[in-house]
């Protein structure tokens, strides 16, 4: 059951591919926790670790990166570069004694409405257990 006390999740999503997938979840009334907030960026490899840290230190319980994976139109190295960013985030999180499980990533495609909702439900569960 979703409540106002549900874990707060910040999603970084890609404008061209993941955003349409997340929009489609809404269009099809596939529900997920209303404490999920989305910021769109051009590419998941452009997310700065300081933004992730800022979110985790200002009331967010988890950060989810909705990436393009190999579909990224900017760089064939995108999956590898996004992984590096997550590794760096986790290193910084450890320093601040934040559980590294609080950051997750998955490829969300432009029609991945159900997978997105499932990821949110799953992450909500994980974060509830961590609390």
């Amino acid at each position: 059951m979703v409540t106002k006390e549900s874990p707060r999740i910040l999603v970084f999503s890609t404008e061209k591919i993941s955003d349409p997938g997340i929009d489609q979840a809404g269009l099809r009334k596939i529900h997920y926790s209303p404490t999920v907030y989305v910021i769109s960026v051009p590419c998941s490899s452009g997310i700065k670790p300081r933004w992730v840290l800022h979110a985790l230190q200002s009331g967010f319980d988890g950060v989810f990166i909705a990436a393009d994976g190999h579909e990224c139109s900017y760089s064939p190295r995108c999956p590898e570069l996004t992984n590096d960013i997550i590794a760096e985030c986790q290193r910084l999180m450890k320093e601040k004694e934040i559980n590294p499980k609080r950051i997750r990533m998955a490829a969300i495609c432009s029609v991945c409405a159900e997978p997105f909702a499932n990821h949110m439900n799953n992450f909500t569960k994980i974060l509830t257990e961590l609390a």
Binding site: I22, A25, G26, H31, Y32, P34
Partner: peptide, 15 residues
């Protein structure tokens, strides 16, 4: 709309 009123029509207060 897509990322709020439609996605959370099941929880209007939280939406």
């Amino acid at each position: 709309r897509e990322q709020c009123s439609w996605a959370h029509s099941d929880h209007p207060d939280e939406a």
